[in-house]
Amino acid sequence: MTTTTTQAPVPALPRLEGSPTGGGSRGAFAFEWTKLTSVRATWWNLLAALVLTVGFAGMLGLSAEASSAKGVAVDEPAHRLAAQAFLVSQLALVALATLAVTSEYAGGTAHATLRAVPRRGRLLAAKTTVVALVVGAAGTVLQLAGGLTAGVLMGGGGTGGDGSPAATALAVGGHLALLAVLSVGLAFVLRSAAGALTSLIMLLLALPQLLGALGPGWLATASDHLPGVAGEALTAPDGAPYGAARAVLVLVGWALAAQLAALVTLRRRDA
């Protein structure tokens, strides 16, 4: 690195002229965008999501093709089939959302961030908006890519069912954006990547299996209202316990609860 020598004068730093402009919520948004796009973890997670989505969608397409070759007709359209890939690939996007928060606490930038944007609500809103937009857009595009891949590999098969590929893509994007809102909120509460990711995997994948298997009816009902189940109801409505409207309501409820907990934590707990 270059060092100044002992005799050298301090380089004169010109004063900032003019009265301050910008900042505020737009500044906080630009800040979060710069932070999210300037670390490799974000791009790795997006790449992982792409590989997982397209890979699994392709496998599902191939297996559907094999089934119909044996005379077992698959009446699900390719885009619906492909959406199942997100059972796995959602984790890469959830990780992206979680790390956007926890890496700040691990790396010591949380203090710099809070000094730049001291209003906790503004910080939380900016972080959540940026992450949810990125994850939601990624989910939409990945679902379109997965649907195309599955469609090509299925050949002519799997044209039954209803819903358009665009509608499914929007549903997947919306579901993932709400999951990102939930993840960001939970990450602000727990502050550690390990804690937040473990909780989210439990919530999204393990709990629905566990609660459903335990027996009592009210537990099964509770299980139906976990965010993972609601997400499936939204993106793959066949056989879902409830319709899309209720699914959105359940997801929004989870996301809001996590955000509220995050806001209380940010305001109450010392950084």
Partner: peptide, 16 residues
């Protein structure tokens, strides 16, 4: 994992 330039650029944007 972030460069010094990106770190400072983010801070600059946050406060106009």
């Amino acid at each position: 994992g972030r460069s010094a330039r990106a770190h400072l650029r983010g801070l600059a944007r946050s406060n106009g």
